[in-house]
Amino acid sequence: MSATHARPVGKRVLLMGTCLCDAFFDDVARATVEVLEHLGVEVLYPEDQTCCGQPAFNTGDWDASRQVARHCARVFVGDLPVIVPSGSCAAMHLHGNRLQFEQEPDDDIASLAARTWEVVDFIHNGLGVTRWPGRFDTPTRIAFHRSCHCRDTGTGAAARALLSSIAHAEVVPFGQAEQCCGFGGTFAVTFPHISAQMGSLKIDHIRDIQPDLLAGVDMSCLMHLDGLAAAQGRRVPHKHVVQILRDTLIS
C-alpha cells in the first residue's frame, strides 16, 4: 500500500480538505493550512473538490466511486503534491483507485496517486521535519491512534516522531493498538452493534493509560470514538495531529 515511487515534494501544494472537514471539522483543514504555511509552503485549495469516492467504493458500487474519483483527479490535475489531512482518503488515492481502475487505466488517476501525501507523512518524510518546535505548558500524555489505513504507510512513525519531539509531550502506547476502532465508513451504520463494541474496546484501552489527549490522523475514527465516548459519558479530549502541531507552536 505504501507508495514505492518518489512522490513530489515542493513548497507549493494542493490541499484536499476532505468531505468530513468540509462538513464537520473545518478547524482540522485550517490547521493543515496553518502548519504548512508555517513551514513555508504555499497552499492552494481547488474550490471544485468534493470527496475521494471511498464511501461508494467500499460498498462495491464502483461505477459511482469511479465517477467521483475521476472528478477528484480532474480537480487536482497538474504536477503539485496533493496533501490530505486523512490517512483514509490518502489510501483511497494510493491504493483504492489502483484496485477499481485495474481494468480501465486512467492517467489522471495514476497521476493523483503519484502525488498524494497524507499531511503528517508529508511534513516528516516529504519536507524532512524531524523535530517539531512546539511546547505544551504542562506534561501531556498522548494516546496516538494510528488509523488502519496507515498500517504500512509512513504516517504512524511520522506522527509518533513529531508528537514525541514536542516539549512536555509523551506518546504513551496502549493495548491492542493493531485493532480497528470500528468506524469503517458505512460499516459503522450497517454493523452498528459490532462497530460500537469495537469502539468501546478501543476506548477502554485508550482510557487505561489515562491520556491527557487522544491524537489521530483520521477525523472519521475520532468522530466515531468521540461520539461513542460522549454517549457513554467518558470522553477523552481529542485532536488531529495537525491541530496539535499548530496549537503547540512556539511563536
Partner: peptide, 15 residues
C-alpha cells in the same frame, strides 16, 4: 449511527 453515538455539530462550508 445515533443508536450508540452522538453526532458532531455540522460546520458545513465554514472551512
Amino acid at each position: 449511527w445515533l443508536g450508540s453515538r452522538t453526532l458532531p455539530e455540522s460546520r458545513g462550508g465554514e472551512f
